[in-house]
Amino acid sequence: MAHTYTDANFESDVLKSDVPVVVDFWAEWCPPCKLMGPIVEEVAGEIDEAKMKIGKLDVDANQTTAMKYNVMSIPTMLVFKNGEVADKIVGSMPKEKLMEKLAPHLA
């Protein structure tokens, strides 16, 4: 299951995580985000939590975090390592391609 990240838990669950964290920035009104939703869920189910955590952040309800990281287009996925942005993946894509992009970041 993909995690749910918010402005409130971002620091503890993402920035202070021991393993890399992928955050999928999305919104209800964004059709390509909704296409990516099930793909992100699937990927989250396949990647070992000890190697990488995956979760979603609703930009509408959590604008502080979205603004802080300059998210200006969704879907955007940010990969966080030790509290820093290690990669930025913009746009929707098939599952295989997403897996390929995440592979180098697995702990």
Partner: peptide, 17 residues
Amino acid sequence: LYGRGVSACATCDGFFF
């Protein structure tokens, strides 16, 4: 600059502007 101010979807990204 795609995803950094350049957008292909006004519906998706208008919110950020």
